[in-house]
Simulated scan of single mutants.
Amino acid sequence: MSSPETTSPVNPLPPVIVALFLSMMAIEVIFQLGARGLAGGPGAIGWRNSAIQTYGFNADLMAWMVQNGRYPQEHLMRLVSYIFVHGTFTHALFAGAMVLALGKFVGEVFSQWATLTLFIASAIGGAAAYGLTAGSGQPWLVGAFPGVYGLIGGFTYLMWLKLGQMGERQARAFSLIGVLLALQLVFGLLFGGNSQWLADVGGFIFGFVLSFFLSPGGWAKIRAKIRRL
């Protein structure tokens, strides 16, 4: 039994989630310092736009790679690097907060490396889905939200399992993603939207499916089911 003096009232955040959050915030701080003339000189005002074009992901680039059968490393790198570049400070702040909240929930069940893999792989899958379905002329894809939606996929998987164990309707596990997509639709109708929601949906689908393999004992359970077929 742990003594009251040594038991923390709050479960610590997984270190990989803290590292992701700090990496995103550090880059955003650099952009803010440059925009305010506190670092980098006059050219620093354009750091964010330059980073978006250098590290962001673009559907036209994806189309070019598929059509030509060429996949340069500097473009494949964008499938991951776009996560760490955000369009605005508010964009980065909301994404970082959701990474912390959902990463903590998923990380309490998944291993650290499984949680990181879930986030990164979902972000890659979301970007690929965006690149293959968005069409030409769409804006640059930047920010951590496709990876966040992957964590939502992990959260949904855990709720789906829990509801099944309780004998309740497992469809209720999809309530969160349903609400979020409905909000995106409303904001899109009110303020205008683009096809970046495709990356979020792709990230969620990848996250939910990957959770079957990344959850504790997940791959072993799948192999056991295959053997029983």
Rank of each mutant, 00 (worst) to 15 (best):
M1R: 13
M1K: 07
M1T: 13
S2V: 04
S3P: 14
P4C: 06
P9W: 10
V10S: 01
N11V: 07
L13Q: 06
P15R: 09
P15Y: 05
V16T: 08
V18K: 15
V18P: 08
A19N: 14
L20K: 07
F21V: 02
E28Y: 02
E28G: 07
E28V: 03
V29F: 03
F31N: 14
R36H: 13
G37H: 13
A39C: 11
G41E: 11
A44D: 13
I45R: 12
I52G: 01
T54C: 15
T54N: 12
T54F: 15
G56Y: 03
N58Y: 08
A59I: 04
D60V: 00
L61E: 10
M65G: 07
V66F: 08
Q67P: 05
Q67L: 06
N68Y: 09
G69S: 10
R70P: 03
Y71A: 05
Q73D: 14
H75F: 02
L76R: 02
L79N: 06
V80H: 07
Y82K: 01
I83A: 04
G87S: 06
T90G: 12
H91A: 05
L93G: 01
F94V: 15
F94Y: 13
G96A: 08
G96L: 06
G96Q: 01
G96W: 01
A97S: 14
M98D: 10
L100E: 11
K104H: 11
G107M: 12
E108P: 03
E108M: 15
A114E: 05
L116W: 10
L116G: 09
I120V: 08
S122R: 07
I124K: 00
G126I: 00
A129R: 10
Y130T: 07
L132D: 00
Q138E: 04
P139D: 10
P139I: 04
P139R: 12
A144Y: 00
A144E: 04
P146T: 08
G153T: 02
T156Y: 00
K162S: 10
K162R: 14
L163F: 11
G164D: 09
M166A: 15
R169C: 14
R169T: 05
R172D: 11
F174I: 02
S175A: 15
S175K: 05
L183R: 09
L183Y: 09
Q184K: 13
Q184T: 03
V186D: 10
V186M: 06
V186Q: 05
F187S: 10
L190W: 13
G192K: 12
A199C: 02
F206R: 06
F206W: 12
F206S: 04
G207T: 09
F208A: 02
V209W: 03
S211E: 05
F213V: 13
F213W: 15
S215R: 13
P216Q: 09
G218C: 11
K221Y: 07
I222S: 08
A224P: 11
K225L: 07
R227V: 11
R228T: 07
R228L: 11
